[in-house]
Amino acid sequence: MFCEKSVELIRELHRMGDGQLPAFNEDSIRQVLEEMKALYEPEQNQSDVNEAKTEGKSELIPSIKFRHCCLLRNQRCISAYLYDRLLRIRALRWEYGSVLPTAIRFHMCAEEMEWFNQYKKSLATYMRSIGGEEGLDITQDMKPPKSLYIEVRCLKDHGEFEIDDGTVILLKKNSQHFLPRWKCEQLIRQGVLEHVIS
């Protein structure tokens, strides 16, 4: 049957329901596109269409419609695949910040990288345009803050880290610090720091 390959693409995303980004499956996409070409191919489909038109062979219409449905189905699957991936990539900007780990970047195709960069830019432009002179970082304070400073513990060596007043602190594994909340929110989300509640 046709359109098995394109559903495979959808299954692949569906299996990772939590928003992980699997590697871009270029191979399958190409196979689906080839199948679509074959469905549309001049030798068979087009000759059927011509015969139906010029010679009034209406008995060919069901087969033509059959192929047409398959083409539309493949189109739907591929669009949904690409669109769902974009949703996932957009989420990455909010979860990881503007710089993605290399392992994840390897899972994106060139066009997706470009889209991600454009999205980053649009978001940055928007954030600069609101909240007065300095702009407003809307990826901060996803949960309403209760205090300006929080206690955090380092989960891995992260190197030096500069805070507002210019002090440089060393984020060493298992060290504990009392830092401005807005400075560490991103690092907590990335799993570098852990929020300690006493």
Partner: peptide
């Protein structure tokens, strides 16, 4: 966690949602 990734929801009733992964698998 408030997840920033939300997949396209399936259609309601007799409708199918074009981009919904669930609906694509259902129609298979």
């Amino acid at each position: 966690d408030a997840l920033s990734y939300l997949s396209v929801p399936p259609g309601i009733g007799m409708e199918e949602n074009f981009f919904s992964l669930d609906d694509i698998l259902l129609s298979h």
